[in-house]
Amino acid sequence: MIGVAMEPEQLRGEAFRARIERLEEIMLSPLAQRSYPARRRRPEPDSTHRTPFQRDRDRIVHSKAFRRLKHKTQVFIAPGGDHYRTRLTHTLETCGIARNVARALGLNEDLTEAICLGHDLGHAPFGHIGEQVLDECAREYFGRGFRHNEHSLRVVDVLERDGQGLNLTEQVRDGILRHTGPEQPATLEGRIVRLVDRIAYINHDIDDALRAGVLDRSELPRAEIELLGETGSERIETLVRDLIDHSAAAGDIVQGEEVGAAMARLRSFMFDRVYLGPEAQREQPRIERMLRALFAHYVEHPPPALAAQASLADRVIDWLAGMTDRFAIRAFQELAVPKGF
Rank of each mutant, 00 (worst) to 15 (best):
M6E: 12
E7G: 08
Q10A: 11
E14H: 04
E25R: 09
Q33M: 15
A38N: 05
R42M: 10
P43G: 02
D46L: 08
S63A: 15
H71Y: 15
K72I: 07
H83F: 08
E93W: 03
G96Y: 02
I97V: 11
R103D: 12
A104P: 05
L107I: 11
D110L: 07
E113Y: 11
A114G: 07
I115H: 05
D120A: 15
A124P: 00
F126W: 02
G130K: 00
V133D: 00
E140H: 07
F142T: 03
F146I: 00
E150Q: 14
D162M: 11
D162I: 12
L168V: 01
D174L: 09
R178H: 15
P182G: 11
L188G: 10
V193C: 04
I199S: 00
Y201S: 08
I206V: 01
R217D: 10
R222Q: 04
I225N: 01
G232E: 03
S247I: 06
Q255S: 13
E257V: 14
A261W: 12
F269E: 00
F269S: 00
F271W: 07
R273K: 02
G277M: 09
E279Q: 13
L291P: 00
L294D: 00
P302S: 05
V316G: 01
I317F: 04
M323A: 04
A328M: 13
I329Y: 09
L335P: 01
P338Y: 07
